[in-house]
Amino acid sequence: MLRYLPFLLVLAVWIYAFIDVLNTPEKEVRHLPKVVWVIIVLLFGEVLLGPIAWFVTGKKRAPAGGGSRRGGWVAPDDNPDFLKGLNEDRRDDS
Rank of each mutant, 00 (worst) to 15 (best):
L32M: 12
F55I: 10
F7S: 04
D92K: 14
L43V: 13
L8Q: 07
V74G: 01
L11R: 15
R3S: 01
A62K: 12
I40Q: 07
I40R: 02
K60F: 12
D81G: 00
G67C: 06
W54A: 02
A17C: 03
L9V: 15
G71W: 05
G45E: 03
D78Q: 03
G65A: 10
K84M: 08
G45I: 04
I52E: 08
G66N: 09
L2M: 08
N23Y: 15
W54G: 00
D77C: 06
G72M: 04
G65L: 14
R91A: 07
A17E: 07
R70H: 09
I52C: 02
P80L: 00
L32P: 10
G45N: 01
L2V: 10
N79F: 00
E88W: 05
V74S: 03
P25Y: 00
V10W: 11
P76A: 01
H31C: 11
V29L: 03
A64D: 11
Y16K: 13
V13R: 11
I40Y: 07
D89L: 08
A53F: 09
G85L: 07
E88Y: 02
Y4Q: 11
R91T: 10
N79C: 01
L86N: 09
E26P: 00
I19G: 04
P80M: 01
E28A: 04
G66K: 11
R61D: 15
E28N: 06
I52P: 02
P63A: 10
L48Y: 09
D92H: 12
P6W: 05
S94P: 05
L5V: 00
G45V: 03
P51R: 01
R91L: 05
L2P: 08
A12T: 13
W73F: 01
S68W: 14
V21S: 02
I40L: 08
P51C: 00
G85E: 07
D78C: 00
R91H: 12
K84F: 12
